[in-house]
Design a protein around this nucleic acid. Structure first.
Ligand SMILES: NC(=O)c1ccc[n+]([C@@H]2O[C@H](COP(=O)([O-])OP(=O)(O)OC[C@H]3O[C@@H](n4cnc5c(N)ncnc54)[C@H](O)[C@@H]3O)[C@@H](O)[C@H]2O)c1
Ligand SMILES: NC(=O)c1ccc[n+]([C@@H]2O[C@H](COP(=O)([O-])OP(=O)(O)OC[C@H]3O[C@@H](n4cnc5c(N)ncnc54)[C@H](O)[C@@H]3O)[C@@H](O)[C@H]2O)c1
Lengths: 198, 198
DNA sequence: CCATCTTTGTGCACGCGTTCACAAAGACAT
DNA sequence: ATGTCTTTGTGAACGCGTGCACAAAGATGG
């Protein structure tokens, strides 16, 4: 039986082995003292706890540059996500195949969500349409939204929203970049704090 | 002079006002007791500290579905980022205009990075090419990388990498989704922990 | 069956970020 | 000027996640 110790896993992940064991302990006692963890069983338990053993249908709304790129992304299917439908308001797009799926009109949203029991929606529309699309998704029964539009969405309690914003990612990089440059070239005026958390 | 209090800002941001004041204090004492913060001056100081007052040239490598979508993203320029060049290995793409910029061949990478003092690179190539592209970017002088390819990149010390992974965003949503569903339908067998950190 | 050896599971202590609470600062009115 | 009132800036307490350290579990060999 192939096994792995918390020490090996911790080294591979670059974390402390005690933290790893404590995290695993929240899922139950799946290890064998003196031996380690049964790899296959551990993978299954973690997958189950993370929700990877079930199939999650998702809809993508807004099949423009970004929406099409997302639809083509293979990492989707390989992690248990199935694209139930691609939706767009543009009637000229309707029926066109993107990543092997036909683009359907936004007015089919309610039917598609209900028929496929979709609980996760991806928004790749322009910012101006994002709130309206969100409201329709929520009304149709979607309770998790991944938002790529640069807007803050308001949703009722019980609905989760995650926002992906390229600008913020770049700003974080730029911030560290500035600090790297500043280390050997301190600001001449004293308005920069002497100490600041990293 | 338009001002704002830490209490107002905290309410708007949904955080504790003391935390907000302490955070601001790391940038210096820009507030006036009994009044609040001068909005314009505060915005400038925060912008400067975050590196938003300077112009950051970036290169995007891999102008496929995703790379083109990123190049078209307007949020780039509005936050002080300037796309210095679009690079791709496909010679058929060379010269084609994407978002108003010509696609240039990957072999121009070193020259472009040096000429424009590019310190930030965005990788949107297939996973198989990402490490090779990274190595060339780093060798050319890039010290911050935003990676969209589903691979872990290895870089020397001093180089920052941020990874954007749609699958993980969806997995986080799916995890919470599963917990929502599980609240009213507890698992019959006892292998689910009674308590677990949110 | 007992001894030994490895590795888990976890109590406890430490450190850091968050929050409380208040003295000091400064605006503004009288 | 002096007093009052608002809001900052920060010392101190609190809470939580991380890491240490070790007893208990269980495999393995004699
Ligand atoms: N978060 C990021 O990093 C990032 C990166 C790039 C783009 N974006 C954002 O993603 C969104 C899409 O970008 P894009 O480049 O694909 O834009 P796009 O214009 O190419 O595509 C938008 C699509 O949405 C459709 N649409 C418009 N209104 C709609 C509605 N009410 N219902 C359904 N569909 C509708 C349009 O027909 C179009 O096909 C934009 O908001 C953009 O700012 C975000
Ligand atoms: N992180 C995410 O959420 C997410 C989403 C979608 C796609 N992706 C990933 O982004 C990457 C790009 O996706 P895509 O759909 O645009 O793929 P794509 O195939 O449309 O584009 C890839 C581009 O990279 C170019 N390329 C290949 N090798 C290169 C090299 N050595 N140097 C320079 N350019 C090279 C190709 O010519 C092509 O134009 C993939 O790795 C994909 O898995 C990530």
């Amino acid at each position: 039986m192939p096994t792995v110790s918390s020490e090996e896993l911790a080294a591979a992940a670059g974390v402390n082995s005690a933290k790893l064991r404590k995290d695993f302990s929240y899922l139950g006692s799946y290890g064998t003292r003196g031996v380690g963890y049964d790899v296959e069983y551990l993978v299954y338990q973690i997958s189950r706890e993370l929700g990877l053993t079930q199939d999650w249908p998702v809809v993508i709304v807004g099949i423009g540059n970004l929406g099409a790129a997302l639809a083509n992304y293979g990492g989707f299917a390989s992690r248990g996500f199935r694209v139930a439908a691609l939706l767009d308001a543009d009637t000229a797009l309707a029926g066109r195949l993107v990543a092997g799926l036909p683009v359907r009109h936004i007015d089919e949203l309610e039917t598609i969500v209900a028929d496929n029991q979709v609980s996760i929606g991806v928004i790749a529309t322009p910012a101006g349409a994002a709130q309206e699309v969100t409201d329709r998704l929520v009304a149709a029964g979607v309770t998790s939204i991944l938002n790529f539009a640069p807007t803050v969405l308001s949703v009722p309690d019980g609905v989760d929203v995650r926002k992906v914003d390229l600008s913020i990612e770049l700003q974080i990089l730029a911030f560290h970049e500035q600090r790297k440059a500043g280390d050997d070239r301190p600001e001449p005026d004293g308005d920069v704090p002497a100490v600041m958390p990293a």
